[in-house]
Simulated assay, not measured.
Amino acid sequence: MTQALPDLHRAAGVLFDLDGVLTPTAEVHMRAWQKVFDEVFAKWGIETPYTDADYFAYVDGKKRYDGVASLLRSRNVEIPWGQVDDSPEAETICGVGNRKNAAFIAVLRSEGIAAFDGSRALLESLRDAGVPMGVVSSSKNAGEVLDSAGIRDFFRVVVDGLVAERDHLASKPAPDMFLDGARMLDVDPAAAVAVEDAVSGVASAAAAGYGAVVGVDRGAGSDALREAGATCIVDDLARLLPDADGR
């Protein structure tokens, strides 16, 4: 049983995932992963096709290389991990991940990105209320996405894939990244709220002991988010505004 929607304006701090929560970049990630895995599967003779369900089960919310390893493991495929500077053509975990990143960056730079209307409205409302905010994203491209969407200035801290790599933080669903976000924002996780659309991200925030974990259903499914530890489910961050649903 999920709880009533929390009042984010009374929280000690709010930590947001980025892709799929604040911006529709999850769609760009999904298209990039589909392209790369379709090519990899065809080349390697993997018969079970890659689908959106695979994205949500094995890739969504995780650091890039962990997502590649998790997906390939689901097909009983093991390849060398490689090095982070492997070429996109390398048949390694890092090579496949770098190939996907190149596809993602190409789309982001050619098309740009904008924040969801409801997400921007909530950020503006929380900023006006003086609520400290941060971003906890597994993406190494979080900075470029925040800049492209024009929302970087809303956040006091950003814990992204680059920080996770530098500080050796375990990938979501481990609690490390959300714990580090709360530490950097100088808030007690139990007094803070996490907002996530990925099953792995919800599990990460729940394991970190956040007082409330808002699951944003952009395709993962409310049941899966709830089972991972979401205390409530919304389909749009506008639902969390003070005047939403009579609150």
Rank of each mutant, 00 (worst) to 15 (best):
2 T>M: 15
2 T>C: 15
5 L>V: 12
5 L>F: 07
9 H>D: 09
9 H>P: 00
10 R>F: 09
11 A>R: 07
12 A>D: 14
15 L>M: 13
17 D>G: 01
20 G>W: 05
20 G>K: 07
23 T>H: 03
25 T>E: 06
28 V>L: 14
36 V>H: 02
37 F>R: 06
40 V>E: 06
50 Y>E: 03
53 A>C: 10
67 G>D: 05
69 A>S: 14
73 R>C: 12
74 S>G: 08
81 W>H: 12
83 Q>P: 03
84 V>K: 11
86 D>T: 10
87 S>Q: 14
97 G>Y: 07
100 K>E: 02
105 I>S: 02
107 V>T: 13
109 R>F: 07
111 E>F: 03
113 I>S: 02
114 A>D: 10
115 A>K: 00
115 A>R: 05
116 F>L: 09
116 F>A: 01
116 F>Y: 14
118 G>H: 09
119 S>I: 08
121 A>N: 03
121 A>I: 14
123 L>W: 03
126 L>V: 08
129 A>D: 09
129 A>F: 11
131 V>G: 01
132 P>A: 08
133 M>G: 04
135 V>K: 03
135 V>Q: 05
140 K>H: 05
141 N>T: 08
142 A>E: 02
143 G>Y: 11
144 E>C: 07
148 S>Q: 11
148 S>N: 04
151 I>R: 05
152 R>H: 09
152 R>S: 15
153 D>R: 14
154 F>V: 11
155 F>S: 02
157 V>G: 01
161 G>Q: 04
162 L>I: 13
164 A>C: 14
164 A>H: 03
166 R>W: 00
167 D>Y: 08
169 L>E: 01
171 S>A: 08
172 K>S: 01
174 A>W: 08
174 A>I: 15
177 M>L: 12
178 F>K: 00
189 P>M: 11
193 V>L: 08
195 V>D: 04
201 G>Q: 01
202 V>W: 03
205 A>E: 07
205 A>V: 09
208 A>K: 00
211 G>L: 00
212 A>Y: 07
216 V>R: 00
216 V>K: 02
221 G>D: 01
222 S>H: 00
223 D>H: 12
226 R>E: 12
227 E>F: 08
231 T>A: 07
233 I>F: 06
234 V>I: 10
235 D>F: 10
240 L>Q: 02
242 P>D: 04
247 R>P: 04
247 R>I: 09
